[in-house]
């Protein structure tokens, strides 16, 4: 399942489409501790977090994530948006909690 389809099904709000929303999402990781995400997330994961500051972008670039979803309606900082578009990282926002977002995304990609 790609990000465009996920965004459509879950009403995710696209704040930055990065290098494109057609990238396949193979899995995901939920975390707000950057070291945890660095150590345990995988390439092509969709990262679900409530951290909205600019440092999340470098983590996603290094881990080659499919994109980042900010939960609980958290909007990305201006610097975060600028960095994400420069580095090609898709950034999406949902009103859902991390638990709900992860659960629904898990079901959709494993359908």
């Amino acid at each position: 399942m790609n990000l465009t389809l996920l965004a459509e099904k879950l009403n995710l709000m696209v704040r930055c489409s990065g290098d494109g929303l057609d990238r396949e999402v193979s899995g995901g990781y939920v975390g707000d501790l950057l070291s945890d995400v660095m150590a345990n997330s995988k390439t092509d994961d969709l990262w679900i977090t409530c951290q909205s500051h600019q440092n999340i972008v470098a983590v996603s670039v290094l881990k080659e994530h499919a994109g980042i979803i900010l939960v609980l309606g958290k909007e990305p900082d201006k610097d975060t948006l600028e960095k994400a578009s420069r580095e090609g990282i898709p950034l999406l926002v949902t009103e859902l909690s991390g638990f709900e977002a992860a659960g629904r995304i898990y079901n959709l990609i494993n359908e």
Binding site: L33, L34, M38, A39, Q51, I56
Partner: peptide, 15 residues
């Protein structure tokens, strides 16, 4: 608050 300082850094590096 930024999600750093979890006490995992050096441990991750060694790993």
């Amino acid at each position: 608050e930024m999600g750093f300082g979890a006490g995992m850094g050096l441990f991750n590096i060694k790993n």
